[in-house]
Amino acid sequence: MTRQTVTDPAKKNTNRVVAGVCIAFFAGMISMAYAAVPLYAMFCQATGYGGTTKRATQQYANRVLDRDVAIRFDANTAGVPWQFQPVTRSITIKIGETVQAHYTATNKFDRPVTGRATFNVQPELAGPYFNKVECFCFTDTTLKPGETLDMPVVFYVDPDIVNVPELKDLKTITLSYTMFPVEKNKPVASSAPAASSNKVSDTEANLGG
């Protein structure tokens, strides 16, 4: 005798409901994730969490220490057809000293492109003590075809960093930027190469107080 499998219509409906709930939950989680991005960025800038540099509330530190630290500069692109790089690969500064460094960006595409940079520092523990006074990060920048833009960053390392046991022997801090396309330039991103790192030779720093 051949057994026939009887499908329960109620069971089918239950499966559809469960699947619908799962899809709705997944979509809701994605929406929450997108909404959390700007809030997370604000939190990181305020606290230095995850190697994000802090936004300085004052232009200068309360003191300058007789201790040097090397600052290395890194630049990357993720879907933006730009040549993006630091003018100087590294500089040596005094802890607490306010300095200015420069990045440049050149649009290599045949039409205007808008980009936006994110940033962090390594080691991550140094994030809360790396204070940026002026920065081009999280700002939409539009470049015409072939246009080059100077992008300064002004910062200082908080002298309180020397009180952190894990950083007592710190010699180098790396400031890294990654340039992304904004949403309206998404087609450009899809036709551009994947993330890349631009390497430059050492040059003399153009520093300001």
Rank of each mutant, 00 (worst) to 15 (best):
T98D: 03
C44S: 14
K54C: 12
R3Y: 01
L143T: 06
P181I: 11
C135E: 12
N206L: 12
D202L: 15
F136Y: 13
G127I: 04
P112R: 13
V162C: 04
K184Y: 10
K54I: 13
A56W: 01
D160F: 00
T57Y: 00
P38H: 10
A27D: 06
T141F: 03
F136R: 03
V80D: 00
L175Q: 09
F136T: 06
F26Y: 07
K184M: 12
Q83W: 11
G208S: 14
V87W: 09
T141M: 11
M42A: 14
Q58I: 05
M179R: 00
V87F: 12
V80S: 06
V164A: 04
W82K: 08
N107G: 08
C135H: 03
P187C: 07
Q59C: 00
R89H: 11
P181V: 14
T139A: 07
P187H: 08
V133R: 03
L207W: 02
K94D: 06
V154K: 15
G146T: 08
P145M: 04
R55E: 07
N62G: 12
I91K: 01
E134H: 10
C44A: 15
A27V: 14
D110L: 11
D68F: 02
T139Q: 15
Y40S: 14
A41E: 11
N62C: 01
V18C: 02
V21S: 10
S190N: 11
T77Y: 00
T14H: 06
Y49L: 14
A192Y: 13
Y34G: 07
Y60C: 01
I161N: 02
D158C: 08
N185E: 15
A36L: 12
R63V: 11
Y177S: 04
A189D: 07
L170R: 02
L149V: 14
F136A: 02
P128L: 06
G208Y: 13
P181R: 06
A75S: 13
I173G: 02
V157Q: 06
G28R: 05
V200P: 04
T88N: 11
T106V: 13
A105C: 06
E166D: 13
V153Y: 03
S201R: 07
K168E: 15
V18W: 05
Y40L: 12
V121S: 05
Y103A: 03
K168R: 15
V153K: 04
M179I: 06
M32C: 11
P187F: 08
S197D: 00
